[in-house]
């Protein structure tokens, strides 16, 4: 409401300028406020946030084996590691790591390693769960998309991924059961 109005309107310009400014600011606040419900509606809905946790029975998983379970639509890798694998994970000096983290900080109880099975590069699911899968040069997982290699603690050792495989929130509900989420 600025330009051509000035030319045609009468004297009291300062008051109108101020009035216009206030009105325009009010209208702008209103339009801005309208945008929020639209944007917010695209966030996860309440039922999605409340999604059930996942229970995993560890008893049938033999040493050296791994299972994949679903949690919040994502694969979770649960691996029962061999003594050698644990040793290998703990022997690595922290300076060698791209995302330094001790193996102890990533687990709750031996021999169980629980990580979110999504490559931290661009979201592919790395190979290494099945015995026939390639596990990469560090014995953990290998992402076929862009060649990231993870070690037996799920830490990034080689390739473009910046971070270790994430550890989901979980708790042991008994000696042989965990609840993820």
């Amino acid at each position: 409401m600025a330009d051509s109005g000035e030319a045609t309107a009468s004297g009291g310009t300062p008051r109108r300028d101020f009035l216009n400014l206030v009105t325009a600011s009010f209208a702008a606040v209103g339009v801005g406020a309208i945008a929020w419900p639209f944007i917010n509606s695209m966030q996860p809905a309440r039922d999605v946030l409340a999604l059930a946790s996942t229970d995993v029975d560890l008893a049938p998983i033999a040493v050296g084996q791994a299972v994949t379970v679903m949690w919040r639509g994502k694969p979770i890798f649960v691996r029962s590691r061999t003594a050698q694998e644990i040793e290998a994970a703990r022997a690595v000096p922290l300076n060698d790591l791209k995302d330094p983290q001790t193996d102890q900080a990533r687990i709750q109880r031996d021999p169980w390693l629980v990580v979110i099975g999504i490559c931290t590069h661009l979201g592919c699911v790395p190979l290494g769960q099945k015995p026939t899968d390639p596990r990469g040069p560090y014995g953990g997982w290998f992402c076929p998309c862009h060649g990231s290699a993870y070690d037996t603690s799920g830490r990034i050792r080689q390739g473009p991924a910046p971070l270790n495989l994430a550890v989901p929130p979980y708790a042991f509900t008994s000696d042989t059961k965990i609840r993820i989420g």
């Binding site: 109005g5 309107a9 009105t23 009010f26």
Partner: peptide, 21 residues
Amino acid sequence: VFLLVLAGLAYAVKRKIWANA
């Protein structure tokens, strides 16, 4: 309440603009 205030402002602007018309 917000819209009532805005209505008052918009009406004032409109009156001012139309004052000489």
